[in-house]
Structures are given as C-alpha cells and as structure tokens.
C-alpha cells in the first residue's frame, strides 16, 4: 500500500493581523517613543507574517508534489515493479500491491485510507484552503507593511526636525 503524506502543520499558525490602521496624521501627533515602539511592533508583525506566508508556500508546494505523485501512481497497474526509496540514496525493489488505495496523513498521527481519486481530491482541497489563507494573509501583510513604512517615514522626518535643534 502506498503511503502519501500531506501535512501542513504549523503553516496555519494563527497570525494576529495588524487591524489598527494608523494614518500619518495620527502618527504625527504621537510622541517619539510611541512612534518608535509602533514602528518596531509593526516591523515584527511584518516579519511574522512573512514567515507564515513562506510556510504556506512550502506546504502548497509539498501538496502539489503529492498530488502529482498520486496522479503518476494511479497510472500504474497492480503488480508493477518499482524502486522504493528507503533513504535519499538507498532504493529497494518492490511491487505495487494495491493500485487503488492510498493512506493519507491528515495530521496528529491519523491516517485515512482513500482511493486514488479521493486522495487527489484531498490534496486539491488542501491546496485551495492554503491558497485562500495565503490571499487573506497577504492582504494583512501589505497593510501592516504600509503602516510600518509610514511609521518609519514619520519617525525619520521627526528625527531630522529634532536633529538641528539639539
């Protein structure tokens, strides 16, 4: 029986969105320290969101590989001879015993027996879920990034103003 693992652990790490939209006008009223901490915090958030986006990207790539592998496997007849990888460089010969069913790793140690087409469905579903999460996150990330940039700009202007005086 072929084993197909499609995990996306951690990719869905809940990331708090920078909901507070702080505009330049408000920033100009803030104290220097407040502004600095705002900038630091939004920078941190941007990094976190970027990490989450990267995780989702790798998870999607892995699911796509799994889906392709399933497609490939579903074309082989039962009893087909193949080489099974034990490690990255060690392969042993084997025969395909069950050409219809695969085991899908759904996470937390649970595996579900599915047919090839169900398995592909599973991968597609997961890819779509990840895509929609990705789109949502990218929106939040760009918003947070613009807040961080604006804060940086106001901060620099403020520092330049304060510079010549002191």
């Amino acid at each position: 029986m072929a084993k197909e693992s499609c995990e996306d652990r951690g990719a869905m790490a809940a990331s708090k969105g920078g909901g507070a939209v702080v505009r330049v006008a408000e920033m100009e009223k803030m104290s220097l320290e407040h502004l600095k901490s705002l900038k630091e915090q939004s920078d941190l958030e941007v990094n976190l969101l970027q990490d989450s986006l990267n995780n989702i990207r790798t998870a999607t790539a892995r699911l796509e590989i799994a889906s392709n592998a399933l497609q490939d496997l579903s074309l082989r007849p039962q009893g087909k001879k193949m080489l099974v990888p034990l490690t990255a460089s060690l392969y042993v010969p084997g025969t395909l015993e069950d050409a219809d069913n695969v085991l899908v790793d759904v996470g937390t140690g649970y595996f579900i027996e599915k047919t090839m087409s169900e398995g592909r469905d599973y991968c597609e579903r997961k890819i779509n879920l990840l895509k929609s999460n990705f789109d949502q996150l990218i929106e939040v990330a760009s918003k947070t990034k613009s807040v961080a940039d604006e804060a940086g700009m106001v901060l620099q202007a403020r520092l330049r103003q304060a510079g010549p005086v002191s």
Partner: peptide, 28 residues
Amino acid sequence: YTIQLGENELVLKELDMLNEDANVFKLI
C-alpha cells in the same frame, strides 16, 4: 497550543467527511 488546535480541527473536518466504513489508522 493554537497550532495544535488548528491541526486537530482540520483532522476533525476530514474525519467528519468520511463514510462509516472508511479505514482509519493511528500512528503509535
């Protein structure tokens, strides 16, 4: 814990979608 909760919820969704005669395995 938040990550684990999300993962468990995904697993539950998968399990809910299955037929009653589906084979489920647990990795121990």
